[in-house]
Design a protein around this nucleic acid. Sequence first.
DNA 1: GTTTGACGGTGAACAGTGTTTAGACAATGA
DNA 2: TCATTGTCTAAACACTGTTCACCGTCAAAC
Lengths: 230, 230
Amino acid sequence: MGTKERQQRERDRLSDAILTAARELFVAEGYRNVSMRKIADRIEYSPAAIYSYFPSKDDIFFALAEEGFQKMAMHISAAVQPAAEPLDRLRRGLWGFYEFSKAHPEYFDLMFVDRSVPSLSQDFQRFEFFQAITARAEADIQACIDRGLFSKKLNPAAALHVLWVGVLGAATIRLAQRLAPGEDPDTLAHDVLESLLAGFTTDIQTTFVASECAFHASDDAASRVAQNNA
Amino acid sequence: MGTKERQQRERDRLSDAILTAARELFVAEGYRNVSMRKIADRIEYSPAAIYSYFPSKDDIFFALAEEGFQKMAMHISAAVQPAAEPLDRLRRGLWGFYEFSKAHPEYFDLMFVDRSVPSLSQDFQRFEFFQAITARAEADIQACIDRGLFSKKLNPAAALHVLWVGVLGAATIRLAQRLAPGEDPDTLAHDVLESLLAGFTTDIQTTFVASECAFHASDDAASRVAQNNA
DNA sequence: GTTTGACGGTGAACAGTGTTTAGACAATGA
DNA sequence: TCATTGTCTAAACACTGTTCACCGTCAAAC
């Protein structure tokens, strides 16, 4: 009767144990120091046993990345929560993104920076996290446009990407420790965010729409755009 | 007589051969796929021989990173060259930075993103490249301020970091392939750059100076700054 | 001319990595 | 009771960075 169910339960239990062991090693030592043998030691099974639960090491990290996205969604939601004004919400959300990179550097690296887990790059858009958080943020940007805080020429989706990527750059440079000893990464992240938001108030960037963007095509195009904006 | 010199010449020759082999493997297969044994195979020596020329694998990558900085300095200088106007020079220089990340992704990753070569993080400011390129770029920013193109409240050094980090974020996200299939990374990089430059024209960011920045201290501080700028 | 010492290079090993495979063993269904 | 199924393991494969005892060569000293 319930034998199939019990077996499945047992499978789930061990699958969870593998993920838990991997997660603990992962946050403690970084994912570069997580090995199948260390995971096996923790769960008191042989390394080969893991392979009947996860096809490869990459798949374990893929599952961990999925956890990371949920963690981040909660982190950002909590940061946005207390604010009602759209610009305030936007600021808080992006700062929450930066803070997440500080609170969970290993997750952040795995989710956004690392190139050694191929499945993550390939299936990145699969994470439904982006549909949820992104939609709200874009609505906030639209609200800022409607209230006259941002340029009417702004494309909310493109603008969100710009903000996201800008803060991500600051977070990455902090994690990679590519700043001089005196420089404060928090200030840098803050300045990037504020500069971008300030830029959104202006009408200057006429090439903001993708189809009009030929800046990178050639030297001639580059100087043409430069002249336009000078 | 010249025996010492000949021995030294021979040492230099082999040291160069090691770096050449490493570089070829590095650009062809990525530095994660460079192994001491593969390098040894190429130079037709045993793996152990390498260790009397480089203390560790990290030191080989450190030397390659140094090459990368020289490469990048040349790339950016060539991009800036044809322009006379400071804003144009700035734009070209930063776009050159982005293009470098496309032309030499492995170098870029090693130089700015990677965390697995500890010596690079530790001695990052040692690369004299930054003194050379940075000084010129800061002068261009100062010129933009003087000509009224940028806010007078702008700190050139901080502003350059902001531009640098913003473009770096776009480059990183492109390399990590964390964009949806439809999205164009070049457009994104361009938008980031233009938004930041546009932001520099405004006086809005009153917290641009480090000492006044308390945005990230607490929720109260965050909302206070938000109100200031709303 | 012989001996000594240093140096350059190697083979083998150590301790680790992800992954595969043949086999053992227990639990299940007929 | 017997055959089957599924789970787990020991051992191996092909790698990784690094170390170390050894070995021959060659320059210098006696």
